[in-house]
Each structure stands twice: as C-alpha cells, then as structure tokens.
Nucleic acid binder design. Sequence first.
DNA 1: GAGTAGATCCTCT
DNA 2: GAGGATCTACTCA
Length: 201
Amino acid sequence: MKKLDFDFYQRDNVLKISEELIGKVLVTKWNGAVTSGRIVECEAYAGAMDKASHAVGGRRTKRTEIMYAKGGVAYVYLCYGIHQMFNVVTNKTDTPHAILVRALEPMKGIETMLKRTGKEKQDHTLTRGPGNVCKALGIHTTHTGLSLRSQELFIADDGFAYAKNEIFTSPRIGVDYAGADALLPYRFYVKGNANVSGKPK
DNA sequence: GAGTAGATCCTCT
DNA sequence: GAGGATCTACTCA
C-alpha cells in the first residue's frame, strides 16, 4: 500500500486522473477505526468551464474556496441536507478541478461501515452512491481541506489495477441542470461491478 | 420493474 | 429565502 503522491493529483488533466483513480484504495482512520474501499466509480468536475461544477465561471466563495487549493486535499459537500459527498481536489492552485468519488468496493472495516449505515449485512448498496460512501467511511463536511496524505484520510495504490477494457465512461449523474455539460462523458466506472450506482446487475 | 415524490439543512443571493 | 454533484420507498403496471 503506497499513498499517492501530490504529483498525482496536481497534474492538469482531471479526466486522466479520474480514470487512474479507478482501482485505487480510499482509506479513512478515525479514532483508530480503519475503513477502506476500492474506488470503482467517480466523476470529473473540470472547474470554471464546467456548468455542473460549483466553481463554474470562476465562482469563488467560502464554500468553494477549497477547490482552488492545490491538488491532494479533500472537498466534502453537503447536498439536499442529507447526503455528504467526498471530492478529491486536483490540479494546481487557482484551478478548481475536482473528482467526486461515487462508489467503492468495500475492503476493510466492513463491520464499522455496517454500524455507521445502520445495515445488518453487507450488500451492494453499502458503498454505492456518493452519499453512502461518505456515510460508510465516516466522512463529514468538517473534513474538508484535509490532506489526502494525512494519517486519517488517504488514497493508496496497492498494486491492483483494472484492465483498460473494464473501465467505461458515461454522462454524469444528477446534473441535469447543467444543460449541455450534463452530457459530457466525465463519469468513469468499472463495468459490471455491483457497487457502481445506476442499475444493479 | 419503472417512475416519482419526499426527506432535510447548509450556503449563497 | 431558495435550492442543491442524492437516496429511498412507495405506487402503479
């Protein structure tokens, strides 16, 4: 298990980073309780040019400020008052690129995840969808700005990789309001993985 | 199985 | 004061 370097996040091609993030391992360790999962679905948000992004048109507020930070930190956003979404900030300072982690394949700490989500046994919904990913891993909006190489939260490469032909792209989910940009193929996912949101297998 | 409505709260206008 | 990068459950076929 090797934590990804800041160099990985600070490249300027957010689509390439998204694609490479598939298969990596997201780990949280709050108060010694370790939970982790392999990333099987994510979406790219390409900053000021992207109508679906919070930073569209260079919009810069206290909430979105963290997207303008240099790559390698977390951006956690609360949506619909219920769901929290975990994003990876990428690119350099003043370029508001981010990647939304939408689904994981559970690895370690499944017991802990079940407890957090109130489920009795593991099924494909445990870490399916951004809201559930955050709930299962115990990620909270107060974690915004945390480094992705910190002790509590990081993304690592354990040597595993999906084959190119297992990774598919599609339009993003839940961004209909973004007009034409909602159709951009900025979503990356592992074909046939039960944890990927959308239709169950 | 598919489609739709409701939940619920922080942030920006 | 309004709306949002969602999920779930319930209805109807």
